[in-house]
Each structure stands twice: as structure tokens, then as C-alpha cells.
Amino acid sequence: MTNRLNVQGLRNYITEREIPLRKRDYAGLDVEIIFRKGGFIGSNIECFSELDRTMHYGRSVINQFERLGDSVVSGSVIIAERLSGSKGRFTRSWYAPSGGLWGSIIYVNTLLPASKLLIPLALGVSCCEALHEWGAAEAEVRWINDVLFHEQKLAGFLLESHRGVESTEEYILIGFGINLNNTTFPSELKKIAVSLSEIIGDTIERDDFALCFLAKLAFNFGLICHEEDYYLVHQQYQGVGGTHLLVNRWRELSQSIGRDVVFGFDVVTRPQYRAKVMGIAEDGGLMMQLEDGSTTIEYSGEIRYL
């Protein structure tokens, strides 16, 4: 662990780099308030040389706190240099050798159900924003939050939630995997995965990238909290025409809208139907038009571009 990737390092990064940047981009908003609302991200940061899965470790941390009757530190970040038992969704493989940014965040949910739906969007948006800043300007987010560069996967996220046995708190474990300097992939992933260092032709300082990603996540989580508060008062969101600021940002960063896609709950093994993406609803649902002209909104599942 270097000196930079720690709680104070993240606070410094947010103050010195991220707040001025956001003030430039969100002139009408009180950016400092938004960062305060998302400030729990990185309340604790633990780094390891190797773990089985950071999600497993996160779960063990939660269980330990539960047994002791203590409160889990929401926003705790767990990062490992490499993972020995990483996996993707369903039965998919995820290769996590040294060089990538592999980790999890423990979030103790305080959001209302409508806002909770948007957490996956915040991950994709934050990662995409960080990648743009590091030179991968064409990185985009594919619904819900796959991050692609020229349709090759650069980053992926897992979210798992459960209730504490003792506290009954709702814990959301957010797993992230971002290909930074890891440039060799197993044969089944070679054609579909890419790393940031391959894109920009340079080595990435992992901890600096991690700070950038976490700072952006703090802002975007803050946006969710802020929009929830705003909606409760005004019955609409603060974006143009009452739209959600985070959802608007997702729209800016995605090329999904207008694309012909195949949709499936598990689209790799069980593709369900073809459709055209018409947009994304304010609650994050994917609006599609099917080949027979009917329309639908999906809240679970995934797409692949045709």
C-alpha cells in the first residue's frame, strides 16, 4: 500500500482535484454539499496483496461487526492487488491478476427504493468518467453499467445485497474490477476484454487511478442522495425538465441509446429477444422497442450490441 491510497489521500484528492472540476461542470449546484452527501465513500480503506474475493472479505467484515453488535462503516473500501477466486455474474469467469484495480465497497443502505435502483448507474458513470480523465476518451457505459472501449470490456461491477442477521440493516456489497495494467487475458476473454494501459500505451499508477475513481463515485453517490432530497421537496429532480442529474450523466456517457441489441436476463447463455434501445427512464429502466413494434422497460438483465 502506498501513502496515497488511504482515507486522507482520498479527501485531499477530492478537495484539490475533484471539487474544482465539478464546480466547473455543475455551475448551478452546491458541489460541496453533494460531496458531503457522498462523503461516506472511502470512510475506511483497506488494501491487501491478495484475497480470494474482496466480496467474500467484505461479507466477513459485515458478519464480524454484526456478531459484535457494532455498526459497519458504510463506504468502506477493500482493495486487493490480485484475486485468487474472482468471478463474474452467473457462472462467468473474471480474471484478476496483478495490475488491475480489484475491490469492493460496503454500503449500508439509507436510500429509498427508487434511489437504490440507481446505484449501479453511479458505478458505470464514475468508472467511465475516470477512464476519460486518464485518456480513454471513447470509453462508454452499456446498460446497466458495463464499461466498454470499442465494445471490449474494460470494467465490470457486481452488486450483492443482504440483511444483517442481528441489525437487519441492508448491506450492499459493490464489487468492481477495472483492467488497468493487466494486459494478458485467458483465451475466452482475449477478444472481449481490454485494459487501459493497452488503450493509452502507458503504465497506469493504480493508486492514483483508484483515488480518481473513488472521488468520482463519492460525487455520483452524492448526486443520488441529493436528487432524493430534492425530489422529496419538489416532487421532481433537479435536471432540465425535472430529469435526474445522474441519469442525465449516464445518457451522456452511453452509446446504448438507439442501438439494436439482444436482451436477456443472462444474455450470454439465454438471449431472449432483439430490440432497439429507445432510452433510459428516470428510474434507470431500459426502454426498448421490440421488432413487432411493442415497447417494454426492463429493470433486470443485460444487453449486447448487434
Partner: peptide
């Protein structure tokens, strides 16, 4: 249970 890519046992 799967909702918006968040899986809950």
C-alpha cells in the same frame, strides 16, 4: 433476486 444488476440471496 435480481434487480438492476443487484443480486440478493
Amino acid at each position: 433476486m435480481s434487480l438492476m444488476k443487484r443480486d440478493t440471496p
